[in-house]
């Protein structure tokens, strides 16, 4: 799974019928040490109610369809978790409420 920051939302009205009713978020991959964006973006389906500004991680490929929200949907990227803490070498590099 890849760590990323939710930086926006994506709206599409003309789309595949199976994409109806699914929240699409714009994610920027982040370096978990510096917490800086890597200018590498992806559109991801949201299955956990993530909001803009939050740090998440998403699953790619066929596994992206194995959540209740995205079962049978044509997605290859689904957010499966909102991150509370990232710990590296016994130090927090990210704490959700400390932002």
């Amino acid at each position: 799974m890849i760590l990323a920051k939710v930086i926006g939302t994506v709206v599409s009205s003309q789309k595949d019928q199976k994409m109806e009713g699914i929240k699409l978020l714009l994610l920027e991959k982040i370096d978990p040490v510096t917490m800086k964006g890597k200018a590498d973006y992806v559109v991801s389906m949201d299955s956990v109610g993530a909001g803009v500004g939050e740090i998440v991680f998403y699953v790619s490929g066929s596994s992206a369809r194995y959540t209740n929200t995205t079962e049978g949907k044509p997605t290859d990227s689904t957010i499966i978790a909102i991150v509370d803490f990232i710990e590296k070498d016994d130090a927090y590099t990210y704490q959700k409420d400390k932002q």
């Binding site: 760590l3 978990p32 299955s47 956990v48 109610g49 991680f57 959540t67 499966i80 978790a81 909102i82 991150v83 509370d84 803490f85 990232i86 710990e87 590296k88 070498d89 590099t93």
Partner: peptide
């Protein structure tokens, strides 16, 4: 190198 903790996950 570390762990990632999430309470609100799938």
């Amino acid at each position: 190198v570390g762990t990632v903790v999430s309470s609100s996950k799938d």
